[in-house]
Computed example of a mutant assay.
Amino acid sequence: MYIGIDVGKVKHVAGFVSTTLLERHQRFEACPALAFENSREGFRALVERIQSLAPLEHCFILMEKTGHYHLALQQYLQECDLPVYTIHVQTRSAGMLKTDKRDALGLANTLYNQLQLGIQVADETHLVRRAEPPTAASAQLKGLIRHRYELVRESTQRKNKLTAICDEIFPELTTVLKDPNLPTALTLHEKFPTPHAIATASLMALQEARGYTRTLPDSKLLELQRLAAGSIGTKDVIRQRGLVLEQGQLITELRLLQEHIGQLESEIKTIVAQAREGKILLSMGIGQIQAATIIATIGSILNFPNAGTLKSYFGWAPMREQTGTTFDRSHLTSRGSRTMRQMMFLIVASITRQETEWAYLC
Rank of each mutant, 00 (worst) to 15 (best):
A136Y: 12
H147V: 02
F345C: 11
Q290H: 08
R49G: 05
V121D: 00
L216Q: 03
G95W: 00
W316L: 15
E154L: 09
K101G: 07
L257E: 03
E64P: 00
A349C: 10
L34R: 13
A136Q: 15
F314N: 04
A104V: 13
T309V: 05
G106H: 06
H12V: 04
E265W: 07
E172V: 01
D6L: 04
M96R: 15
A317K: 08
E57G: 07
A30C: 11
L216Y: 03
L173V: 11
Q140T: 10
A185G: 10
T156P: 06
S350K: 04
H68K: 11
I5A: 03
Q51L: 02
P55T: 12
Q249T: 04
D179V: 09
I280V: 12
I119W: 09
M343G: 04
R276G: 00
K279V: 09
L206V: 00
R329W: 02
I198G: 00
A131P: 06
E29C: 03
P133Q: 09
L282V: 05
L117C: 11
T20M: 06
H25V: 01
C362L: 08
E321S: 09
K65S: 14
Q140A: 11
T252Y: 12
G248E: 10
R226D: 02
V272Y: 01
Q120R: 15
L361H: 11
S266R: 13
T175E: 11
L264I: 03
G211T: 04
L82H: 06
E223L: 13
T19M: 06
F314G: 14
H88W: 02
G67S: 13
L346W: 07
L254S: 10
G248N: 14
G15R: 09
N306G: 03
R49K: 07
E57Q: 09
Q288W: 01
L216G: 02
M344W: 08
E150S: 08
D100M: 01
M63A: 05
T270P: 02
I286P: 02
T19E: 12
A185Q: 08
D218C: 06
